[in-house]
Design a protein around this nucleic acid. Structure first.
Lengths: 275, 275
DNA sequence: CTAATAGTGTCTATTAGACAGTATGTT
DNA sequence: AACATACTGTCTAATAGACACTATTAG
């Protein structure tokens, strides 16, 4: 050992093949919010939060659905890969993106050893009207949890995908539940795990950060904002409490949303307060 | 495309070399708690939280300090690598471990493209008396933050390492501050970033989880526990408030710690309550 | 006795939960 | 007028912050 006299010397002779190399990919879970028309002129549209999936038209997992993703290039920073793919998939830039988790089981890909770093992106769907690639599709997300078993239902206009995951009780040596996929209809790879991780991250962070506003249009009513909180947190909130909490984060405008079959509502916009 | 008739057929002919492969490593930030003797028989020992560093005796970064780590093997699950290294470094098993973040800048390693997934481990130092490898050493951690610049001081019996990181203001497209290393004395790689990420994770999670208890011995006084909270959160806490909050998580025993030059204190142990 | 920490009581300020009530559009 | 939502007032419960006080040991 220490047969080199300097760092330069060492690097010049470094044999990078000592350890067998592997491939890395990135998977991006893109969340947004969607409305569903309700056939009652008085009622508000029902809000969902939704996730963008892509139909695979190649092996492996041909004809199954998966998260947008792709390989990390050898000369590309890790976080530039999801940015590239996101821009490619949606044709827009400046999308909120945060790293989620790195999945690296040996057999998670049937082709070869692939480690994948997942990212979560949040976007206002209206920003990309007609800019979506043909093989991509939004799915509404609904989930229920009982006895540590999570049922997730993904619904698009044409298809319904479901999966079921058991959150195995964590022991003292780790922070995470061990996720065990019990059922998985037509999702590729370990993407049910990624989707559930994303849902839980979003659910947690919505309470102590301002990330929701990345999914909202510039102007919105407090009722709409509350609906978004409710579908993500999966529970009803009380109006006064919600308004109290949100008050410091939004700014009332003089715009008014009318024509809804009931009392009109002021439009608000996000107020970025550096605390 | 679609030249294969089945998944099996496709996999048989799959050429895994289409994308240039890369290497992956893992870095583990191991936190613990240490006392420093105070030369006043009445006073309590001063508590620090501390991190385990390893002196490099090979290139690259020869003679600098780094986090314990190593390469991910091609046939090893991602999270098994830090477990293996941890067991190797400390000679004990069952250590709390959670994934921190995956760092993947193109030039973070001078040898070649290496992506590294960092983990945070928490341990009670007393569990590994005399079991440490010779090249490893505990450093006490102290930090100050002002105007988004964090100064970190790492102190061992023989050495003092310091680094300074600027947290560049986040924009709306990401959750993380961009960390910019302003000064770095003798730490290898991008490990100042990893250490700061670890400190911030620990600081956050100590408030809403029970992870501290992974750093505590089986029996401890509430004063000691409070000291640990204080050094990690970097601020004084009020006794009554602290005891209120912690009350549901600990169990009073009939053991008493005496001989301290002041009123003796009951020993408590962690009470794991499934809520 | 003294210094130092252990541990408790209580007042106040702030925040969260609950519910009832009023306001105002469209059909 | 009826309905559905918008928006507010207020009471109560729970929680957090602050400070003062008592208790108990070694030296």
């Amino acid at each position: 050992m220490n047969k080199y006299s300097s760092e330069e010397e060492f690097l010049k002779h470094y044999d990078s093949s000592v350890f067998e190399k592997l491939s890395m990919t990135t998977d991006i879970i893109i969340f947004s919010v969607s409305d569903e028309e309700v056939n009652n002129y008085r009622k508000l549209n029902k809000k969902y939060f939704s996730v963008l999936l892509v139909k695979r038209d190649d092996y492996p997992f041909k004809d199954k659905w998966c998260l947008p993703g792709g390989f990390i290039k050898i000369d590309e920073d890790l976080e530039d890969a999801p940015k590239r793919i996101l821009a490619n998939e949606t044709n827009i830039h400046n999308i909120y993106l945060e790293q989620l988790y790195t999945f690296g089981s040996v057999n998670r890909d049937p082709r070869m050893r692939i480690v994948s770093t997942s990212y979560m992106a949040l976007i206002d769907k209206n920003r990309l009207k007609d800019k979506l690639n043909a093989n991509a599709c939004w799915f509404n997300v609904e989930y229920t949890e009982k006895d540590n078993i999570v049922d997730v239902i993904l619904t698009s206009e044409k298809e319904i995908l479901t999966f079921k995951i058991k959150k195995v009780l964590k022991d003292m040596t780790t922070d995470r539940y061990k996720f065990e996929v019990l059922e998985n209809d037509r999702l590729a790879f370990d993407h049910p795990l990624v989707i559930l991780s994303g849902i839980e991250r979003l659910k947690n962070k919505i309470e102590y950060t301002d990330i929701v506003f990345n999914m909202m249009p510039e102007y919105f009513t407090l009722g709409e904002l509350q609906q978004v909180y409710e579908v993500i947190l999966n529970k009803k909130l009380l109006d006064p409490a919600f308004r109290r909490i949100i008050a410091s984060k939004v700014e009332k405008t003089n715009k008014i949303k009318t024509g809804e079959g009931h009392r009109p509502s002021y439009l608000y916009k996000y107020k970025n307060v550096e605390k």
